[in-house]
Design a binder for these strands. Sequence first.
DNA 1: CTTGTTATCAACCGAGCGGTTGAGTAAGGA
DNA 2: TCCTTACTCAACCGCTCGGTTGATAACAAG
Lengths: 119, 119
Amino acid sequence: MAADALSRVFSALADPTRRDMVARLAVGDATVNELAAPYDVSLQAVSKHLKVLEDAGLVSRSRDAQRRPVHLEAQVFDLMTKWIERYRQQAEERYRRLDDVLAAMPDVAPTPPPEGSPS
Amino acid sequence: MAADALSRVFSALADPTRRDMVARLAVGDATVNELAAPYDVSLQAVSKHLKVLEDAGLVSRSRDAQRRPVHLEAQVFDLMTKWIERYRQQAEERYRRLDDVLAAMPDVAPTPPPEGSPS
DNA sequence: CTTGTTATCAACCGAGCGGTTGAGTAAGGA
DNA sequence: TCCTTACTCAACCGCTCGGTTGATAACAAG
């Protein structure tokens, strides 16, 4: 099993179907059947996906008769954001320092754009 | 292989060892041996981890004699941050709306904490 | 009590992951 | 040239993951 919370969260969101479900749940709570509708997988598979999201703390499930409304727990996103921001800022700082170094060198163009230009 | 870029990034960061390496690389570039030092796994295992990070676009590898310095590519973090922020903001908005509804009901306490209470 | 709906549990399967060891490649130095 | 350093490639192994089907639980309604 995934040891720490952060691993569980990242791992849960590594699956596109699960990210899709999070997107759906951001609009509002939904039942398992409602969540399953867009995908042509079994209800059991969807139930498993929800279990993963629940174990990661991304969703919670309550009870309404036979229905099991699923609710998005947005607080967990903060955990990720915090982790990401930390290293992004560190990396940006390094980048700025590199800028300074390059700016001090007259024969080198400042801030060469990354050569792997994405789409 | 993981289909989309976002899946690859989340999947890469789902491993605590790999997140640790990202943390190390945020401080500065490092060789494979330097990165492997803290962990008691084989160099080949570390090399594989780096391949995963590279495929996710999180790091790049150049060449310096026999050494292969690894460099953190911070731009990819933006991809994640964008995805996360989108749904976090949506969820927060919903939360605020719920607040309003509850505030309008005199016999219900405003913002009840999520009932994660066990059975 | 029986039927239908909603959802979970259990067992299984193929694919992929994280780890290993062993061999091979690329480069510097004796 | 041969040796050493730094690292990757290839094959294998056990475990987990996402999917399946079949059985079961919880509840509503007839």
